[in-house]
C-alpha cells in the first residue's frame, strides 16, 4: 500500500510490545520512514529511558522538544523531533493550565501526589495520555509544535512495556468509573475518545519471532482490542534474519567450485555459522507462522542487522526496510470503529 496513506491513517501511533523486543528501534524506524516521506514527525517517550535518543545519536530526551533527525535534503524530508511526557511534568502543566499553580507546588512538595495517584490509580497514565491528546489536537488544528516545529503530521508514542501498556491504555476506562465528575473525568473521557477512534489513533504491536514474545503479543493484542477498544495496525516482527542463498552449500565444495582453498579450520567455522543461521531461521519461520495463525493481522518484518548497538544509519536502514514492507502490504480495509467487548478479530 502507499506509504503515506499508511502513515497518515491516524495521527497518533502507539508502539507497544514487551521489554527487549525492540519497541524503541521500531519507534525510531517508523519516525524516520515518515520523515523521509515529508511528514513532520514527533516522537513522545514516557519512561525517561535514554535508548530512544541514543539510536539517533543524541542526548537523553527532555520535556522540551529537540530535533532528533533534521529534515531537508533533495528529497524534501521532514524533521523527526522528540520529547518526553512524564506524569510529574504533565501534572504540573495541567494544574497550572487549570489555574491551580499554587496547589501544584504543594502537591509535589508534600508528596500528596502519591496519595492522589493511589486514590485514583491511572491518574498518572491519564496525565500522559491527556498530554498526548493535547499535542494531537494542536497538530490537527495546524498549530506548530510547542517548541516551534512544523505541526506534527504523525505523533509516535513509545509506550511502556507490554504488561504495563495494557494498564496504561486501560487507565482512561478505569478513571471514568473512579472519578465521576470534574476535570480528570473530562480528561479521561477525551483520552478514551482518542484511543477508540481509529482515524485518530492506532497501536502498532512489536514482537520478536520467538515463542514467548509471540505468546505475549497475542495476549496483549486481544486485551487491547477487547478491553481498551483500540484499533490495531499491522504487527511488526523485529529481528528477522534476512534470507541468504547459498548457506546450505558445503564450504569445501563451494571453495572448489570458486577455484579457491580454505585456511585450516575455516571450513568448520563457515559450516557452523551457516548451520546456526539456518536453524534460527527455521525457528523464526515457525514462530512467524504461529503468529499469523493466532493473530490475523498483517505483519511487517524488520531484518536483524547483526549489530549489538544501533545508530542513526541503522535506523535509516530499518526505515527503508519498513517502507518496503509497507509497500508490499495489501491495502488495509477501511478501519471500522472498534467496539468494546467485541470478539477478537
Amino acid at each position: 500500500m502507499d506509504p503515506v496513506q499508511f502513515l497518515t491513517a491516524s495521527r497518533v501511533v502507539i508502539v507497544a510490545g514487551k521489554g527487549g523486543v525492540g519497541k524503541t528501534t521500531v519507534t525510531a524506524a517508523l519516525a524516520r520512514m515518515a520523515a523521509a516521506e515529508g511528514l513532520a514527525t514527533l516522537i513522545v517517550e514516557v519512561e525517561g529511558k535514554s535508548g530512544l535518543a541514543a539510536v539517533f545519536g543524541r542526548e537523553p530526551l527532555t520535556y522540551r522538544e529537540v530535533v532528533l533527525a533534521p529534515g531537508g535534503g533533495p528529497d524534501g524530508a521532514a524533521d523527526v523531533r522528540g520529547r518526553t511526557v512524564t506524569p510529574d511534568d504533565a501534572l504540573l502543566e495541567y494544574l497550572e493550565d487549570h489555574g491551580l499553580r499554587r496547589v501544584s507546588k504543594r502537591l509535589v512538595a508534600t508528596g500528596a501526589l502519591d496519595i492522589v495517584a493511589t486514590a485514583a490509580p491511572g491518574i498518572k497514565d491519564i496525565l500522559i495520555l491527556g498530554k498526548v491528546k493535547q499535542l494531537e489536537r494542536a497538530a490537527a488544528a495546524g498549530q506548530p509544535t510547542e517548541d516551534g516545529g512544523e505541526p506534527a503530521d504523525l505523533i509516535v508514542l513509545d509506550a511502556p512495556a507490554a504488561g504495563h501498556a495494557i494498564t496504561f491504555l486501560l487507565a482512561a476506562r478505569g478513571l471514568l468509573d473512579a472519578v465521576r465528575v470534574g476535570p480528570i473525568h473530562t480528561q479521561a473521557r477525551d483520552v478514551l475518545e482518542l484511543l477508540t477512534d481509529p482515524s485518530r489513533c492506532q497501536v502498532l504491536l512489536v514482537t520478536l519471532p520467538e515463542e514467548t514474545p509471540v505468546n505475549e503479543l497475542t495476549e496483549t493484542a486481544f486485551h487491547l482490542e477487547d478491553r481498551v477498544g483500540v484499533s490495531l495496525g499491522p504487527v511488526v516482527v523485529n529481528g528477522v534474519y534476512p534470507p541468504l542463498d547459498g548457506l546450505d552449500a558445503d564450504p569445501e565444495e563451494a571453495a572448489a567450485a570458486a577455484g579457491t582453498s580454505l585456511r585450516p579450520g575455516e571450513a568448520e567455522a563457515l559450516r557452523a555459522a551457516a548451520a546456526f543461521r539456518l536453524a534460527r531461521q527455521r525457528l523464526q519461520a515457525e514462530q512467524v507462522a504461529r503468529l499469523a495463525d493466532r493473530l490475523p493481522l498483517p505483519q511487517l518484518h524488520l531484518p536483524y542487522l547483526f549489530r549489538a548497538e544501533l545508530g542513526p544509519d541503522d535506523v535509516a536502514e530499518l526505515a527503508r526496510a519498513l517502507r518496503g514492507q509497507v509497500v508490499a502490504l495489501d491495502a488495509l480495509p477501511a478501519a471500522a470503529p472498534a467496539e468494546s467487548g467485541a470478539e477478537p478479530r
Binding site: 541468504l244 547459498g246 552449500a249 563451494a254 567450485a257 570458486a258 563457515l270 555459522a273 551457516a274
Partner: peptide
C-alpha cells in the same frame, strides 16, 4: 555460495 558463507 562461498561468498554467502563468508558473508554469514
Amino acid at each position: 555460495p562461498l561468498g554467502a558463507l563468508y558473508e554469514n
